[in-house]
Amino acid sequence: MNNKPTAVQAASQIKLMGFDVDGTLTDGGLYFGNDGETMKRFSVFDGQGLRLLMDHGIKVVWITARSSTIVEKRAKDLGIYQLVQGCKTKLRAYDEIRESLGLQWQECGFFGDDWPDYPVLQQVALAATTPHSPQAMQSTANWINTRPPGDGAARELCDFILMNQAGYKNPWESQ
């Protein structure tokens, strides 16, 4: 039985938001060039959403099972608080970050789409996943995106969190 708070309740308390990379921030595809380099497509729209979270004081971390210089570069470009790559135990990595920030689980969220993300989704207050994730993950989640991964899914989640945070004001409304 899922005894998580509602997504709205959870979003209102978020201070740490974690993201898997492949299948949430990207479309999950791996593109290989002729010289063997691996490429991934990231959305500028999603990146803006992540920056809005950070501008509101929410720590954003990426925890991914794969390792890639392009992920490292994108995380650095966006100013992501912490990037953990090549991670076999995402829950342990997330818990260490959470504890270092002195946060409770009810202040934490995670967006993941496959089995390595499942233990984290079971623990956090805001458990976000995709329609293509395994059914057990969808049952554990309290928020499921409608936009395509790598093309607005993360932004949709960021906007949802911000709209439910006390004191959030859209920086462009007053312009």
Rank of each mutant, 00 (worst) to 15 (best):
Q123M: 15
R51T: 04
D114S: 12
R74Y: 14
G23H: 02
W172H: 09
V124G: 14
L91N: 02
G47A: 10
R155N: 08
N34V: 01
M54E: 03
Q175M: 08
H132Q: 13
G79D: 00
A166F: 03
D46C: 08
V84E: 06
L121T: 01
L50S: 05
T129F: 05
S43H: 06
V124A: 10
N3D: 14
G23E: 02
G23W: 00
W115H: 03
A65M: 07
G49T: 12
A153N: 02
Q138P: 05
I80L: 07
G18R: 06
G152F: 07
I70R: 12
N34C: 02
G33K: 04
L53R: 05
R66E: 13
G112W: 13
L53D: 01
I161Y: 08
R66T: 14
R66Y: 08
Q85R: 02
G109A: 09
G152Y: 04
T6G: 13
M39N: 10
I80N: 10
I63A: 08
G167K: 11
E72N: 14
G23T: 01
R147D: 11
Y94L: 13
L50Y: 02
M163F: 07
W105G: 02
F110D: 05
L121H: 00
Q138Y: 00
P119L: 07
Y118I: 06
G57T: 12
Q9C: 01
A125P: 04
V124R: 11
V60A: 04
G109R: 10
C158V: 01
G47H: 08
A166P: 12
L162H: 02
T24H: 00
Y31R: 00
P134E: 04
M39E: 05
L30H: 07
G47F: 04
V71I: 15
D95K: 15
I70E: 06
N164G: 10
G47V: 08
T129A: 06
G109F: 04
S67N: 09
I161S: 01
K169I: 15
S43F: 01
G18T: 05
G28F: 04
F32Y: 14
P149V: 11
F42P: 13
G102W: 09
R92V: 14
M17T: 06
P116L: 06
Q85L: 03
L83P: 07
L103R: 06
P116G: 01
Q165L: 11
A153L: 11
V60C: 11
S133N: 09
P131W: 04
R98W: 10
L162I: 09
D27A: 06
N145E: 01
